[in-house]
Write a protein that binds this DNA or RNA. Structure first.
Length: 425
DNA sequence: TCTGGGGTCCTAGGACCC
DNA sequence: TCTGGGGTCCTAGGACCC
């Protein structure tokens, strides 16, 4: 028998985080909005039952929300991140060999438990629930792809009681015949269309597809997915997080930005935040891209999109360096007649690439050490850490902050702020 | 008129994920 | 009026090299 892998996944994770601290939300339709309160990115079961789709723009579901009294919340990533960490703590008690796959999913190697792994999975599920308050499901399979799919079955079909084991061949066969191919990890819309043209619509049919055909139709990725469905392990549990390759800070603006100054305020804020993230991870970047564009959804507004990339020499994580770089990008890309034409930029972002650990960054020839800069950045981070984000910013970020996003319905940071701790009477 | 045969590296763009 | 943000991997094709 193959070594089993489990995938444990929080149910409607963001909604569940909110419900832990606001039990009155239990049993009610709840949605969590994206940044800027734009669209629904998480939904309770009750909200899903009303037909609210993932990613639905709020303004398009306003009637539905009103009619059914759907509770609407801005996203509170500080809370979700902290709850996620608590879930990982609970999971890590069960196996030293696990991978944090996303904010609400963890792969766990169950091979150390002999034949008892299903009982362990059941225990893990209830322990996570007990220690964090987050309801969750567990899928077990001989590959990551099968574990993901088993998790889907555990969520969808109550007969499994929240734990579905695909290492049982009868369960596996029964489910694969019934699960639409689009639910398989790695099969998106485009691939689904291609597969449909071959008459492949279920997970079982995908499993039975010749691997050479899979390669022809897709890429090595699709071939790997077919192999994994057949129980051939192609993807290992990555318990050591690989070095990340890029990093981005992008935001929609609260108000349209119509002049260079407004765009520069946003880009300054994003570059500053990006520099903070670099320093937090002990990284430096070798390349930076600044972009901004108008609202692509608009059918009537004149469209314009700017993206400029420059090398950072030497590699850096210094706020002033990054802000200077995005300023060069913005000035180089700015349309001289933008204001006259009436371009309304609604989104801006900064992307960093060629990331390297600070200590690995090769010193450039003639590079001059700048200890004062490093000390300044340290002081800046310390001040913002102590007195709250964005207390100390560069002047070019401005005070008007037209780019700042809406978050009108955000819950308190229950677990990470002294002032927001829940009070018990 | 006839014009090789390999390599590598980089980038842009597509597809997918949560 | 109002449509998220942050990642990964793969491929094709161009530039360049000897």
């Amino acid at each position: 028998m193959d070594k089993p892998i489990a995938l444990i996944d929080g149910n409607n994770f963001y909604v569940s985080c909110e419900r832990v601290f606001q039990p009155h939300l239990l049993g009610k339709p709840v949605i969590i909005l994206s940044n800027n309160d734009g669209c629904a990115v998480a939904r309770s079961e009750e909200a899903k039952a009303l037909g609210i789709k993932m990613g639905a723009p709020l303004f398009k579901i306003r009637d539905l929300v009103k009619e059914h009294g759907v509770k609407v919340l801005s996203s509170n990533y500080t809370l979700y991140g902290d709850m996620s960490r608590r879930v990982v703590d609970a999971v890590s008690q069960f196996s030293p060999h696990y991978e944090i796959y996303s904010i609400d999913e963890n792969f766990v190697d169950l091979s150390g438990f002999g034949e008892r792994y299903e009982a362990i999975a059941v225990e893990m599920r209830s322990t996570v629930r007990q220690l964090t308050g987050i309801p969750n499901c567990v899928g077990i399979g001989s590959t990551k792809t099968l574990a993901k799919l088993a998790n889907f079955a555990a969520k969808k079909n109550p007969i499994f009681g929240g734990v579905c084991d695909f290492t049982k061949s009868a369960v596996l066969a029964w489910c694969l015949d019934r699960i639409p191919v689009g639910e398989v990890w790695g099969i998106g819309r485009q691939t689904q269309i291609k597969l449909a043209s071959q008459g492949i619509t279920t997970a079982a049919q995908l499993r039975d597809m010749p691997r050479t055909l899979a390669r022809q139709l897709g890429t090595v990725v699709l071939e790997r997915t077919v192999a994994e469905l057949q129980g051939i392990r192609c993807l290992e549990i990555e318990d050591v997080a690989p070095q990340r390759k890029g990093m981005a800070v992008t935001r929609s603006a609260g108000q349209p930005m119509r002049n260079l100054e407004a765009v520069m305020q946003a880009l300054t804020a994003h570059a500053s935040r990006a520099a903070e993230k670099l320093r937090m991870h002990g990284l430096v970047a070798g390349q930076i891209t600044a972009f901004f564009h108008t609202n692509a959804f608009s059918k009537t507004a004149p469209q314009h999109s700017v993206s400029r990339t420059i090398k950072l020499k030497p590699m850096t994580n210094n706020t002033f360096d990054l802000v200077q770089a995005v300023s060069r990008c913005a000035h180089a890309g700015w349309h001289p007649k933008a204001e006259a034409i009436g371009y309304a930029y609604t989104k801006a972002g900064v992307m960093l690439d060629d990331l390297l650990k600070e200590e690995d960054a090769s010193k450039m020839l003639f590079d001059v050490e700048q200890p004062r800069d490093a000390r300044l950045m340290k002081a800046m981070d310390a001040i913002n850490d102590r007195y709250g984000k964005k207390k100390l910013v560069l002047a070019s970020q401005g005070f008007k902050n037209t780019h700042e996003a809406k978050a009108d319905m955000r819950s308190p940071r229950f677990t990470t702020r002294m002032s927001d701790l829940p009070v018990i009477y």
